[in-house]
Design a protein around this nucleic acid. Sequence first.
DNA 1: GACAATTATATTGTGCGCAATATAATTGTC
DNA 2: GACAATTATATTGCGCACAATATAATTGTC
Lengths: 149, 149
Amino acid sequence: MAESDELLRLDNQVCFLIYAAANLVTRRYRPALDELGLSYPQYLVMLVLWEEAPSSVGHLGKRLFLDSGTLTPLLKRMERAELITRERDPADERRVLINLTEAGRALRARAHIVPETLARNLHIDRDDARKLRDMLGHVVKTLAEGAPP
Amino acid sequence: MAESDELLRLDNQVCFLIYAAANLVTRRYRPALDELGLSYPQYLVMLVLWEEAPSSVGHLGKRLFLDSGTLTPLLKRMERAELITRERDPADERRVLINLTEAGRALRARAHIVPETLARNLHIDRDDARKLRDMLGHVVKTLAEGAPP
DNA sequence: GACAATTATATTGTGCGCAATATAATTGTC
DNA sequence: GACAATTATATTGCGCACAATATAATTGTC
């Protein structure tokens, strides 16, 4: 019983730390992202698009674990900022393809400052960062795959 | 240059995994929390209050890494739900003391189902959970302490 | 004991995050 | 080729999260 109790406490602690870390990370990213005119979720969308453009809304959602309820208004704001374009896929009119504008592509050249400034703040060595990434990757995979019972 | 490009890859970013894990954890908690009539941040407030009531708004903010802009409306909703009370501290009228109602205290008896349902989903052994907790604790501490440059 | 500086909370406005629902296009089945 | 089921995105409504700002109480200093 002590064993299962400890596991429960651990889970609670881990989940709270994930929640707190997410808020704190977003706060830390803000100054650097402000200079690019991006929010943190918008920055994540740009990271996907710099790798894979065009992407459908659904593809962005799969990569970022977000649904259309979050992405649609976010993408419309990015469209108003002229970073991306949104157009229906002619081959499948249900889909909306997100593409980069010239300004959106150009932003990449200035984006390297973002991970750099944060890395300076995190004070974590490469080994620990890799371990943390792997453990979080496992947690994310588990949570994302697990079907709602 | 390859190194800077590497940093802009989504898959390499610990911060993205923290962000994704936080969203996924909140989603996982929701069904169990719905039965208690709580959101995840409200549940965190209750966890603090079950340990330390009354607590000032500022104390809750320090424990949860949130400010009054987030907490004030959240606490007002919890007050409307009759889980807590809010009253000015007579000894220092700037402070607002948050206390549990009878219903708020009683909710604790049903709250154990929350970490239990999540633990079944996380699939992580005790050693890894401890390691993850310690690494995240270090990240949170660093991010919370670091002064804005 | 005036009064400037500090501290604690509240307010405003913007942008997520998501459940629930709606709409339209496509696919599968007969 | 009708049409039910599925898929992709959009909409609505609510609750955070936070920067910027405001207000009121307290503390420190002279």
